[in-house]
Nucleic acid binder design. Structure first.
Lengths: 332, 332
DNA sequence: AATCCTTACGTAACCGTTTTCCAAAAGCGT
DNA sequence: ACGCTTTTGGAAAACGGTTACGTAAGGATT
């Protein structure tokens, strides 16, 4: 391996000079610069990133924490992050947390130890203290779909509640009289907002009560099981809003097994806008989140913070619009 | 940050001694060991992983290259790798290559520079020279579903051809008279093997010729488009084997739009065994690959190589069985 | 000509480990 | 008590960079 000292020797300068030239710091005569660059090229020198990390406490890497890559929404998000990061020459560390506190902790520690340059968090079980801790080490963060009251943390979210309202009111508009919801986990703030959006639209109907709410966990299977539950409780149900697309897909299967025609006897709307919803039978109406765009923005925000001095960090809270996509599952 | 020297000072020994004790190398009196450990605990000392990497040329990290995490098969595989890696205290670096040579190259270089301890490759566009290069830097590799003739590289694969035969012969068994295939990309060896398996079963029928083969790219959309193509070419088609599940899902939609009843007028079988196939309407028969298990085995193999001296590396080529799963899409 | 500023670059310390080599201490046999 | 081997642990040099500081040379200013 060729080191900076090898280059220095061959170019007849000191290692410090080579370092400065590489990093464009301090001055040097045009001749020296040219000579050093020539030698670098000739010897095929490449700075050792690990050694660099040791002194600079940076790693050219940013981390993305997601709850699971098994839900296609997250890969889409990850691509946004990755493409954008690559365009800046940054590597990304994709971390699957399964929303388990233990895994989150481990990742966070390991990431800090590796001097990651920033962390994008889209995962439950990350506390304000965790972010605080990263900040105290000079590591900026951006949360996705998680906001903390503190003004210190940047976040990017979408209008979940509004999206849920779009979905639910659409069901009402097409004539559904009894609308259920398959909600997401209780400790998930996005799930809660999506539930609220639904509530906003149905709370004044006299048929509405808690029993129209089924508790899912965002998996296909839970959508399937919850739908069966709803059928049992309310044979007269004629519309369902699933708080994410995977559950909507499971739900579709349950409807089929239960012998309900979609959309005529049961209208369905999902949430997320994953690709698969176009290909189900029938295709599922959904509220599309700009996943890719969110990923892109997260990187931008991280870089904005990086440029600032740690003490001047001021958080930005951004909220993106969602888009309702009408498909057969709710066309009457 | 507390360093090894801080610990040394407080314990009244040298940094070298602390290092030796931590790593269990060389000897020390039980008292010294106990004292050092006590101080480590008291001060909350944790070795700096970056500094460690610099000297040891290791990083406690292994990388996994996959073509895309958007195909649910790969997340499943990734989980196997990750869970297993975690149980050994290893971090994993998940790399999305999109099967682009450029990205593969960049990742490989970046990974080598970061002293990854091993690389698991399940991606096209990785050449024998790439692996050779990693080996020359002491980095062991395991390929997944890619085998090179050289005996130097360990690999884990599944019996694609056999799986394709299972699928195709099943279609024949249930009475299909005209069976098409939606194959995968031409440069993908697994796609080729799966095609062969199909050919093995149909080549002797007099109806068979090239026109029963449609060229897909393993995406849902391509399954959809290819099926339309097949319908146009062969209105009498009554069975299709899709070389992966995503394409089978796309195909299902095409069948529906074309007004063909599945399975009665068109029987369908996929490949991979992704979860989603259980939830389509109808559920899709498939050939299940032990994705999780493959991931697990890849780590095991990597660790086996790590323990050996680089010069003693002898490759193992393992091939796992697939399992045919019968579902409604091909039940008559 | 003396003074001061700038520029260009070298020296050496540093980042936090590991590891090689070596010396002191301890154990052992006689 | 004396050599001889084995333990135990320290000093210092790696690993491959960055950077604070210093200095010599050259130019401008008075």
């Amino acid at each position: 391996m060729v080191t900076i000292r090898d280059v220095a020797a061959k170019a007849g300068v000191s290692a410090a000079t080579v370092s400065r030239i590489i990093n464009g710091k301090g001055q040097a005569t045009p001749e020296t610069i040219a000579r050093v660059h020539a030698v670098i090229k000739e010897m095929g020198y490449k700075p050792n990133v690990v050694a660099r990390s040791l002194t600079s406490r940076q790693s050219n890497t940013i981390a993305l924490l997601v709850p699971t890559i098994s839900n296609p929404f997250f890969p889409e998000l990850a691509r946004g992050v990755e493409d954008s990061a690559n365009s800046y020459g940054l590597n990304i560390f994709l971390c699957n947390t399964d929303d388990e506190r233990e895994k989150v902790r481990n990742y966070l520690i390991s990431l800090r130890d590796r001097y990651v340059d920033g962390v994008i968090v889209n995962s439950l079980n990350v506390t304000e203290e965790d972010l605080e801790e990263l900040h105290s080490h000079g590591i900026p963060t951006v949360t996705l779909d998680r906001t903390f009251s503190s003004h210190k943390f940047s976040s990017i979210g979408v209008k979940h509640r509004e999206g849920a309202r779009l979905a639910t009111s659409h069901l009402i508009d097409i004539g559904c009289k009894r609308i259920g919801i398959i909600r997401g986990p209780e400790d998930d703030s996005t799930a809660i907002q999506r539930l609220w959006g639904y509530r906003d639209c149905v709370k004044n109907f006299d048929w509405f009560d808690q029993s129209w709410i089924a508790l899912g966990d965002f998996s296909v299977k839970s959508g399937y099981l919850c739908m069966k539950e709803l059928f049992q409780r309310h044979p007269d149900i004629d519309g369902v809003y699933a708080a994410n697309d995977l559950m909507a897909i499971g739900l579709l299967k349950a409807a089929h097994e239960w012998g309900r025609k979609v959309p005529d006897e049961l209208a369905i709307v999902g949430f997320d806008g994953i690709d698969m919803t176009q290909y189900t039978n029938p295709p599922i109406s959904t509220v599309k989140q700009p996943a890719y765009e969110m990923g892109r923005m997260a990187i931008e925000e991280l870089l904005r913070l990086k440029k600032l001095d740690e003490h001047n960090w001021y958080a930005k809270k951004q909220e993106l619009d969602v888009e309702f996509i009408l498909r057969e599952s709710s066309m009457r």
